[in-house]
Measured scan of single mutants.
Amino acid sequence: KEFRPGDKVVLPPYGVGVVAGIAQRSVSGVSRAYYQVDFPGSRSKAYVPVEAPHSVGLRKAL
């Protein structure tokens, strides 16, 4: 896996977040693995496909 729990990442347009782990989510009846990204200071979460994280701009924070 490219990202691990605890990694600081950037996800446009949300900003800097932390990978909380990998979650299985069902979309249109198909279960897939997603990185769960939490954003400190907020209750917001984002789910990014493990198979294509760069397709939505997910990258490691510098």
Rank of each mutant, 00 (worst) to 15 (best):
D7F: 02
S42R: 12
D38H: 11
V19Q: 01
G21Y: 03
A52Y: 08
H54Q: 10
P12N: 05
V30Q: 09
V50P: 00
A20R: 12
Q36P: 03
Y47G: 01
V56N: 12
P49S: 07
L58F: 03
V10F: 14
P5A: 11
A20D: 04
R25A: 06
K60R: 09
K8P: 07
S26D: 11
L58C: 07
K60E: 12
L62Y: 10
H54Y: 07
K8Q: 09
V48T: 01
V16F: 13
G41F: 10
K1M: 15
A52E: 11
R43G: 14
R4Y: 10
A52M: 07
D7H: 02
G17S: 01
F3G: 01
R43C: 15
K1H: 14
S55N: 09
V50K: 03
G17V: 02
A52D: 15
S42D: 09
R59H: 15
Q24R: 11
V30N: 05
P49R: 03
A20T: 13
Y35Q: 02
K45M: 11
F39R: 00
V9N: 00
R43T: 13
G6A: 06
S31K: 12
S55A: 10
S26Q: 11
A46H: 10
L58S: 03
Q24D: 08
K45W: 06
V16D: 07
I22P: 01
Y35A: 01
K1A: 14
P13T: 06
G21A: 11
R25H: 09
R59F: 04
R43E: 12
P53A: 15
L58D: 03
A61I: 15
I22V: 08
L11S: 02
H54P: 05
S28A: 13
P5L: 10
L11I: 05
P49C: 10
D7K: 00
S55L: 13
G15F: 04
L58H: 03
E2T: 10
P5G: 03
Q36R: 07
F39S: 00
R43D: 13
V9D: 00
V37L: 06
R32K: 13
G21E: 05
A61D: 10
V37G: 01
V18F: 10
R4A: 12
P49K: 02
V19A: 01
V19M: 04
R25P: 02
G41N: 12
Y14D: 01
R32C: 10
L58T: 04
V19H: 00
G57E: 05
A46R: 10
E2A: 12
V9R: 00
V50S: 02
D38K: 09
R59A: 07
G6C: 05
L62E: 15
F3E: 00
G21V: 05
P49M: 04
V10P: 01
V16L: 15
R4M: 15
Q24G: 04
R59W: 02
Y14E: 01
G29V: 01
V56D: 06
R4C: 14
V48Y: 03
